[in-house]
Nucleic acid binder design. Structure first.
Length: 186
DNA sequence: CTAGGGATTGTCT
DNA sequence: GACAATCCCTAGG
């Protein structure tokens, strides 16, 4: 499906995060279907944009539908999609479908290719050089889903602030997520 | 200027 | 399940 960029660029992080589930993301022809995301809002203590513009988070205050890439724990890269309102959506897992050999080469032939933000970035060849780039241009290629999938949600992973917000989203039932989602409540 | 701590992952026990 | 690896932003003096 072609992208409705006008619609997508107007969404804030909390709206965009579930909207991205099921969309296909390729970087240099390598990638697959997005199955797990997390939303980070500007007024969110867990967000890098919470304390206002800084050199590191400048991309979050730029135009939406651009990449925000940061280094995590000094060694891993993490890829976000900037949303309206100085928020961003962290891409945590994709179901790899294109360029499997290249991903395995970058991942050192490890079994886990794209389940987790650091692994995903490594498998897709993302580095700080991609920070601030528009997702409308090479090497990025994004294709919309044809219909809305069933979405799971849970609290976000690895944060110490605003831990109760259920702002992690996933493709229901996918085995490619970084962590299983709790069963729907009853 | 220095100390503390991550939106993580791989390895070892 | 525990912990090291490793960079750099942030807070505080």
């Amino acid at each position: 499906m072609p992208l409705n960029l006008l619609e997508l660029k107007a969404l804030n992080a909390l709206e965009l995060a579930p909207r991205l589930i099921g969309m296909k993301l390729l970087v240099g022809g390598v990638g697959g279907s997005i199955v797990e995301t997390e939303a980070y809002l500007a007024e969110d203590p867990a967000s890098h944009s919470f304390r206002g513009p800084r050199p590191r988070n400048a991309a979050m205050f730029g135009p939406s539908w651009h990449a925000y890439v940061y280094r995590s724990y000094g060694l891993h890269w993490c890829l976000n999609i900037v949303a309206e309102g100085a928020g961003a959506v962290l891409l945590r897992a994709i179901e790899p479908t294109e360029g499997l050999a290249e991903m395995r080469a970058r991942r050192g032939s490890r079994v886990s290719l794209c389940n987790g933000p650091g692994r995903l970035a490594q498998a897709l060849g993302i580095t700080g050089a991609h920070n601030g780039l528009s997702l409308e241009c090479q090497p990025f290629s994004i294709v919309d889903r044809s219909h809305a999938p069933e979405i799971s949600s849970s609290t976000r992973i690895g944060i110490s602030k605003a831990t109760e917000q259920p702002w992690r989203f996933g493709f229901a039932g996918s085995r490619f997520v970084s962590r299983a989602f709790p069963k729907p409540g009853r």
